[in-house]
Amino acid sequence: MKRTPSVWLKWLLVFVLLVGSTTTATAAAPATVAQARTVYVTRTGKHYFYSRHDRGLNHAKKVYAVSLTTAKKRGLTLAKTSKKKAAKKKPAKKKRVVKKKKSVKKKTTKKKVAKKKTTKKKSAKKVTSKKKPKVKSSGTYIAGASRYRVKVLNKNRPGFSKATLSTRKGAWQKYGRLDLYNRATPANALLNRKLMPKAKRQALYVNPTGWHNKRIKSGWLYNRSHLIGYQLTGQNNNLKNLITGTRQLNDPGMSKYENKVAAYLKASPKHYVRYRVTPVFKNHELLARGVKMQAQSVGSNKIRFNVYLPNTQAGMKLNYVNGLSKVAK
């Protein structure tokens, strides 16, 4: 019976030791975690920093690495720069979601632009597929569209000298000599109402160079074309004033400009027009390639032009060497 109390005392001591060790272990645990975290401080500073390269330590002469618990025991607080860095690390996931949405929008816009470009290219090909009339070096012309085209020269300025625009000697007309191939050369005049004929024109019977006329679908292929129109000077069967011209060259080509000049001259006896028509031949060809028409009203610009009219006919292939022709294919 005496031994029992000693046994109980032993068990009590063991129990007390076990309880004390667990409480001391739990109490010491947070202290060891705090001691494991290394922070950076200065000798006289009031704050501690998580990073050695924090901008708050840029001007410090010496920096010491201590445990977090040591820093707190000294009464140091966390620096503001370290707080900002810790706060910035969290919202990284939201930015990634926004970037994915933007990339999807860019892909859709690129596809729409590519479709528009392809439609433009197709329309451009259709425009360029139209056929244009061709001029061959052999002296033949293949006419394309039926529309007659006139080319404006020198911005429509005729370029006559002041001396030839003088009206002191009154109206006059001059025709160049025929060349070695009996072709007409430039015709010049200072036109006035006095030169205009009053009698009806007689039928033309002389044949200029390259005259090989024939019937086509639209009528006669060629006309005996006056360089200076009959209604302006009254010159008719004058080989120096005639060339072989297509119907298109004669009308609507030259007659359009001749009618404007005639209307201006008829309006007043004081109206004068300096006038020049030049047939354009190439090498020894007998059929003119076209004519150059120049006109300038004296004292005004009511009549003023400088144009080139081609000697062509729609749907016909002309041989400018001799004036022969055939239907264009």
Rank of each mutant, 00 (worst) to 15 (best):
S325W: 03
D179Q: 03
S146P: 05
N250G: 03
T119V: 12
A295F: 11
Q231W: 05
K102N: 08
P252L: 07
R183P: 01
Q173I: 14
W211I: 00
Y257D: 12
K110E: 12
A29R: 12
G75R: 06
A60Y: 12
K155D: 15
A314G: 07
S325N: 06
Y272S: 08
R147L: 15
T312K: 09
N322A: 07
S129W: 07
V135C: 10
F160G: 00
L12V: 13
K121D: 11
Y48N: 00
S268K: 13
A86Y: 01
L12E: 10
S137R: 13
I216E: 02
N192C: 11
T209G: 02
T70N: 14
L324K: 10
K102V: 09
V104Y: 07
R177K: 13
S129T: 13
V98T: 13
N283D: 15
A295M: 11
A71R: 01
K107N: 11
F49Y: 15
K101W: 08
R215C: 05
N241M: 03
A203L: 11
N154M: 06
S161A: 10
G315A: 04
R157W: 12
A288P: 00
Y50L: 13
V135F: 10
K302Q: 10
T128D: 13
A28M: 11
L18G: 15
V280G: 05
K111H: 09
K105Y: 11
K110W: 06
A92L: 09
V277W: 02
K88M: 03
V41D: 02
T167W: 07
N182F: 09
T140C: 08
T209L: 03
G139T: 01
H47G: 01
K200F: 04
L153M: 08
Y272K: 05
K89W: 02
Y272H: 14
Q202M: 09
L221W: 01
N58M: 11
G75N: 07
F281I: 03
P186K: 04
A60M: 10
S103T: 12
K115I: 08
T119P: 02
A87L: 00
S138W: 09
H271F: 11
V127N: 14
K84W: 00
V104D: 12
A65V: 03
K62A: 10
R55C: 05
T4R: 12
R149P: 00
V127M: 11
L180Y: 10
K80Q: 07
A145H: 14
G20F: 15
R157I: 13
K99D: 07
N237Q: 09
K266E: 04
W172E: 04
Q202G: 11
T278W: 06
V14D: 12
K317P: 02
T26N: 06
Q202H: 10
Y141N: 04
N154F: 13
Q235N: 08
L18V: 13
Y50H: 06
